[in-house]
Nucleic acid binder design. Structure first.
Lengths: 337, 337
DNA sequence: TGTTAGCACTTGGGCATGTTGAGTGCTAAT
DNA sequence: ATTAGCACTCAACATGCCCAAGTGCTAACA
């Protein structure tokens, strides 16, 4: 038996199954794809593929379905990332034009990606650990409530409320703001924990308490901006593409709502030399996603932040991978410039 | 025939159907609810209720199901908003404790409400038109890119990027910031369009251009914070509560993603004297929600912003309404104080 | 007049049974 | 190594049957 043909058969099965949603049998296979052999031969090949765990039959007398392992092989060795259609390229161009602030861009991007792939799209906020402090602002909301705002030179703004143990005045806050700003302006966000304590220590005793609270607030903000967040779009696609029930969407919606889960998932995906990483079905660390695949890639400086999509294992990998890669590139270009 | 009993029958039908998900028949009804009459009598009443369009039979020989109109009557005249259970009260207390900034609070609130009701919860950002300018900040991101930050005394922080026609320097920005701040600090957000032009007019000609761009950015931010946004949680409940398919969740997810739709929906809901407003099935202006109900109420100053839930028409209205009302009250209290 | 008992009637759901067709695995021939 | 042929399996579909739940109606009743 010929090894290359076996792979060809696998590819055919995957491709057919992906857009028919039905188990594909030997006969249908020889008809649609002009492999130069008879269905009996295909049957033999399929038996082997099944032995290797690449495909499986839902029941005795049905066609075969690719297994997770089968998709994996398909993605790794068979499929070629297709170039995007002209229409798709145009869509990317026009939709990502007119950049605004980071949030806007990410929101549009993720919407675009979800439309392009008909899946749920997810994008992680860019990492900002290397960003530097640009400004800070203390705003008195109530006598013991202070709004702390941290502006990074990356354009990211973080805010949070700090509760003081004693009443604070505007003047005190002004003074403290000047002190803090003098010491930390321009320093990296992830160095804050090292720098802040010394500032507090130098404060006059009467202010020490308040300063401590504020410093703590600033640390939290710095951490939060290093700490990750995400935007998503296209959840309705989950319901659409699964008119039947191959993917029970409940657990997937849960995973998406538990942003922490998704963020870990994205972060943990190793960078793939081919540009996009794919995690298929049970390969996913999260149980609820055992029938789903994630296609993701990095973007931006150092490809540190991730963008990707989430969909049923039965998806059009080549096109999806192409879309993810293309969108990530455009995004990198826009943010980078 | 007795009018009050007819209503009692409707109530019984609604209550039974809501938690059994199955059409309820005359016999089952007399068994579970000790109405003092026989099933035959109930049958007569049911025939009348059906004539009035309050209930309907899915097929000849099945029990009856409440119609939208039936739910409406139930909500308006029959049901009493049940008090929350002690456990629920405790949950509200503990989860909404430790207030942070507005975003945090809203996020926790909406999560809480979705858990309490097992539905999708939605909350609109509070209206801030009456808020005043506390601080502004211009940050140079690139020679022609300026990050504009607007901090309101309500604790809301808005940010956006402005593109300048010519290169700007830090010094220029500092100067402009001082000018702007001098004129608009303390003035209401919705007065910005009136105030800003005069500031620009007073700028030296060399800065006029840049000032114009910044003023425009500030206006946009002020508008955006008046302009509405929302947070939601619990989309996974859609899949859960509809294990079968009474509610096709696709269109609902779409509606939720089109935030504009949801926001209009919420805004358009008239304030109800009883505290919560309910919009049932086809009463909803949006087609995708023809099998869903919205239970919402206002919160915060003037009850101007809305909070509510979205679920299948077949939902436990009394409890849901109670939860929405209770959460809205707590939220008002927290934000108000 | 409102209530009730009784009864004929309708109908979806469950079940057993039969049939069909797609698909497989195996064997023997090429 | 490939192929034709064939026996076999099994989900999906159809058919027929019965049952239970539920209805509407009528006639008797308080």
């Amino acid at each position: 038996m010929s090894e290359p043909r076996k792979l060809e058969v696998l590819r055919a099965i995957v491709e057919d199954y992906v857009h028919s949603r039905e188990p594909v049998g030997s006969k249908a296979l020889v008809e649609r794809h002009h492999l130069g052999v008879s269905s009996a031969t295909i049957r033999n090949d399929m038996a082997l593929l099944e032995e290797e765990g690449l495909i499986a039959a839902p029941h005795t007398s049905a066609g075969r379905i690719p297994t997770d392992k089968g998709y994996r092989l398909f993605v790794d060795r068979i499929s070629e990332v297709k170039p995007l259609s002209a229409a798709e390229r145009r869509a990317i161009h026009s939709l990502l034009e007119g950049p605004d602030d980071v949030e806007d861009i990410l929101e549009r991007t993720v919407r675009l990606l979800s439309q392009l792939t008909n899946q749920v799209a997810v994008v992680q906020y860019p990492h900002l650990s290397r960003a530097r402090v640009r400004h800070i602002e203390f705003v008195l909301l109530a006598p013991r409530q202070v709004l702390v705002v941290l502006i990074a030179d990356s354009g990211k703004v973080e805010q949070g409320v700090v509760h003081a143990a004693t009443d604070a005045t505007d003047e005190e806050l002004m003074a403290l703001r000047a002190r803090f700003l003098g010491s930390i302006a321009g320093s990296q966000l992830d160095l804050m924990p090292q720098v802040l304590p010394s500032v507090v220590a130098l404060c006059p005793p009467t202010l020490r308490n308040l300063a401590g609270a504020l410093a703590h607030g600033l640390e939290r903000l710095a951490e939060r901006s290093r700490d990750e967040r995400m935007v998503m779009a296209g959840t309705a696609n989950l319901a659409r593409s699964n008119v039947d029930f191959p993917l029970s969407i409940g657990p997937v919606l849960e995973a998406l709502e538990e942003q922490v889960v998704m963020l870990r998932l994205l972060s943990d995906m190793a960078e793939d030399p081919r540009g996009v990483t794919v995690s298929i079905g049970r390969e996913n660390p999260y149980d609820g996603l055992s029938e789903a695949s994630v296609v993701a890639t990095g973007y931006g400086p150092g490809s540190s932040a991730k963008i990707g999509i989430l969909g049923p294992t039965r998806m059009d990998y080549p096109n999806t991978m192409a879309a993810v890669r293309a969108v990530a590139r455009y995004l990198s270009r826009i943010l980078g410039g």
